[in-house]
Every structure is written in structure tokens, then in C-alpha cells.
């Protein structure tokens, strides 16, 4: 049977990229810096936000919470008196394992961009999928906790290569674990040499001040071209 061959040569995620650029243009127009915060489940993203968003040196901050189900994290953030918008990814089949540009775009009418300088998007906990989907962010920050082991950078290189800052969380647990910090750093350098990193404990607050300074600096930085 005769077959017709059609050249396409199109990136499968082009549509997501286009929407991400539209989100980014909206954020830029409102002067909002956007941070896409990613990690494995349980790495401590929400606890870190709880620790770091109060009195952020005059920076007006908001949070977009992505979760498969429940408003539990959003409720924790709302206690900080910062505007929080929840995206539950559950209505699609099985619950999406990541946020994409379209989900963020649909939530934007609920986000008070006029009243913000900084928007933190807490992505769905997952070390694979969120790395594939730009949402319109200026910065990608990932949280890796020491309980996850030293090998994560080399097991999930896409995630670790794509981020602008790596936060190593739960360092208060180091005395109780076999985790070798120098080995983790070597693995991190093997996939993303010189990526900035911060060591902290969201639980005890150690090192959190430096992260807060990073956020304030990010919020006051001029937008970079995409």
C-alpha cells in the first residue's frame, strides 16, 4: 500500500515551551521574579518555605502550590499570611506528576501578580518529570535532602543539570546518617560543575538566612532574556 512520508521535525514540547514563554512574559510585565522549586517527595520544600518567607526584607512574596492531591501544603503556607494558590493535578488521569506551563497558566488569574515581587512555585515532588516542563520561571531551584543519599545527582542528571541552585537540606541529620557530603558534592560536580549550592536545615534554621538572601537578591534582579 502507498504511504506518504511527511517531514515534521518538531519538538514534542514546543507547545509547552510557547505557553511557558507566555507565562514568563506575564511575570515580567508585572515585575515578578519566579522560582520553580523542585525536589523528590519529602525533601522539605514546604518546611523550607515555612521557614523562609516571613519578613523577606520588604519583598512581597506569593506561592503557587502544586500537589497531586490535598490542600495540606497550601494550608501550611497560608498560615504565613502570604498569598497562596493551589493547583491540584489530580483531575487528569491518575494525577499528573509535575506542573506544566498550561496548569500554571490556568492558575494565573488567581495569583495577585500586581501585589508580588517574587512568586515561588512549589512543584509536585518528583525527581524526573518536573525537569522536562518549563513553566515560565526565571530560576530553577532544587532541594535535595541528605536522607536521599549521595547518588541522586548521577541517577537524575536531567534534574540536577537543569537547576540554577541546589539546596542540600536536613544537614542537622548528618551525624546520624552514612551520607558522605563530599561524595554528594563530587557527584553533583560530575553532572553540573560549579552549580551554586546552599547547605541548610529547614528544621533548625541553620543556613536558612543565606537562602533568604538569595531570594531577596533574585527578587530584585533585572529579568534576563529567556
Amino acid at each position: 500500500m502507498h504511504r506518504t512520508h511527511v517531514k515534521v521535525l518538531e519538538d514534542v514540547l514546543d507547545a509547552n515551551g510557547t505557553l511557558a514563554r507566555a507565562n514568563r512574559a506575564d511575570f515580567d510585565r508585572h515585575g515578578v521574579t519566579v522560582v520553580n522549586l523542585m525536589s523528590a517527595p519529602g525533601a522539605g520544600k514546604t518546611t523550607l518555605l515555612e521557614r523562609s518567607l516571613r519578613d523577606l526584607d520588604g519583598v512581597r512574596v506569593g506561592v503557587l502550590e502544586g500537589d497531586v492531591q490535598t490542600a495540606l501544603d497550601a494550608e501550611r503556607i497560608a498560615l504565613l499570611d502570604v498569598p497562596v494558590t493551589l493547583i491540584n493535578t489530580d483531575p487528569s488521569f491518575g494525577g499528573e506528576c509535575h506542573l506544566d506551563a498550561n496548569m500554571v497558566r490556568s492558575a494565573l488569574p488567581e495569583v495577585p501578580l500586581d501585589e508580588l515581587d517574587l512568586l515561588l512555585i512549589e512543584n509536585v515532588g518528583n525527581l524526573v518529570c518536573p525537569a522536562e516542563f518549563a513553566v515560565g520561571e526565571d530560576f530553577r531551584v532544587m532541594v535535595s535532602s541528605v536522607t536521599e543519599g549521595e547518588d541522586k545527582p548521577i541517577k537524575y542528571p536531567l534534574m540536577f543539570r537543569t537547576c540554577d541552585l541546589v539546596i542540600v537540606n536536613k544537614i542537622d541529620l548528618l551525624p546520624h546518617l552514612d551520607f558522605k557530603l563530599d561524595r554528594f558534592m563530587r557527584n553533583l560536580d560530575a553532572v553540573h560543575d560549579h552549580v551554586p549550592r546552599l547547605l541548610l536545615s529547614a528544621k533548625t534554621g541553620e543556613g536558612v538566612e543565606e537562602w533568604r538572601r538569595w531570594l531577596v537578591e533574585a527578587a530584585t534582579r533585572q529579568p534576563q532574556p529567556v
Partner: peptide
């Protein structure tokens, strides 16, 4: 030994072409 490397290939995820019936 430098870690400053650019990815030349391996990041692709594209529909290259289609075979259509009639």
C-alpha cells in the same frame, strides 16, 4: 577534566516525520 561542557546531542525529543496511509 573540565565540567564546562555543552550538550551537542542527546537532548532531542522530536517528531521527525510521519508515515501516512491513504
Amino acid at each position: 577534566g573540565s565540567g564546562e561542557v555543552a550538550v551537542i546531542a542527546g537532548n532531542e525529543f522530536e517528531v521527525e516525520s510521519l508515515e501516512l496511509g491513504e
